[in-house]
Write a protein that binds this DNA or RNA. Sequence first.
DNA 1: ACCTGAACACCGTTCAAGT
DNA 2: ACCTGAACACCGTTCAAGT
Lengths: 234, 234
Amino acid sequence: MTTAHAPATGSRVPLNRSRVLAAAVALADRDGIEALTMRSLARELGVEAMSLYHHVANKDDLLDGIVHVVAGEIQAAASALEPPPDGSGWKAAMRRRILTARSVLLRHPWAPGVLETRTTMSPHVVRHYDALLGLMRLGGFSYDLAHHAMHALGSRALGFTQELFEPADDDGDDDTAIAMLEQMADQAPHLVEMMTEITHDGPESTLGWCDDQTEFEFGLDLILDGLENRLRQG
Amino acid sequence: MTTAHAPATGSRVPLNRSRVLAAAVALADRDGIEALTMRSLARELGVEAMSLYHHVANKDDLLDGIVHVVAGEIQAAASALEPPPDGSGWKAAMRRRILTARSVLLRHPWAPGVLETRTTMSPHVVRHYDALLGLMRLGGFSYDLAHHAMHALGSRALGFTQELFEPADDDGDDDTAIAMLEQMADQAPHLVEMMTEITHDGPESTLGWCDDQTEFEFGLDLILDGLENRLRQG
DNA sequence: ACCTGAACACCGTTCAAGT
DNA sequence: ACCTGAACACCGTTCAAGT
């Protein structure tokens, strides 16, 4: 009703769920997910922490909410892609949709971690999964093979992977990294040799020798090629 | 010195790091990782919370420690496997080692989640990775291909995958699950049809239609087959 | 209907003090 | 050398009260 003349003085617009969620996403993007507390979010919105409970049930609901926002971005970006020409294009179409999801998640690096902890799927994620299934069905997959495929893709279907060696970026201290490598040369000779060999023809930074995008696509293509084989074998 | 005659009265053995870590692993196994707090762990050991800080630097160090214990179990189980006959056995040998790691992690369901949050790798994990690299080298992999392979495997190399739909086991309430399915039939038609179709020839439980072990092996074999192809292509 | 302040039950952790 | 109690700075959340 009174939305016409909002007073000139700052934040007199009443809070609502989407404003709370948008602020939470922005805060997590800027300061990291561990900085997102009910109190810090309230401060960001110029309000008391307890006010938030009128718009989200609790912190878990808040986390569900921000995952939903990100999943919505994925859905929006993916639905903007043109549909595959015919069933034979399932592989390229899946690849494109998954890489699109990945490009969205790269803007919200905290999202994979939060996604893992959710027990219910956002409807947007459900639709994303369904779209992938639809592509496979068009390509001639049985539901059984498509089901295996979804498991094989795992979180990769949404555009991220579980890396196990996420080296804490110790800003440019490559000397200690090299010292560490030499120290464990007897314990892990192959690992050390691999790293030194690949580092040689790689970029200057010792620890920056893994191109995430390249590795993601390598793994994704490996799986998609494997599925193509299984599909041919019936 | 005085370890010979421990008094009959319960816990008069002095605390040490490995006893603290063992108790922490046992507590997490029994009550879940969220139940592992400095205070609860101390109570378990019949001691004050602050005493723990003489044996672990802080909670992060405690988490590093219990991951190290689990990784040690993996290493022990894997080193008990007989070595592969020759280089041609790389695929079977990797498969066996990875499934062995998985069998250990199944006893510590909290471990994958904690592993993800660690910024440094346990030496046991390093050795596990190195053993996998060694198998690939024996099989004729270049370090470049082996490097891609490790990324493609990701956390699967340690025996777990990032499942995105970990349905909170709502004990046997299959009716509401079916109702939910029907409700989203228009939003996710393929997903619904897949679930109903697979459920038919599956076991009795509606939500228990995914055999984790089968799916893990399907994905692992998909990747190993794909690597074999890449290896042949040079 | 929306917001608030004080309070509660939990955390991890510091510190000075005990033996 | 090892353990302790009280205290501090944070959490998420409840509750009764304000407008």
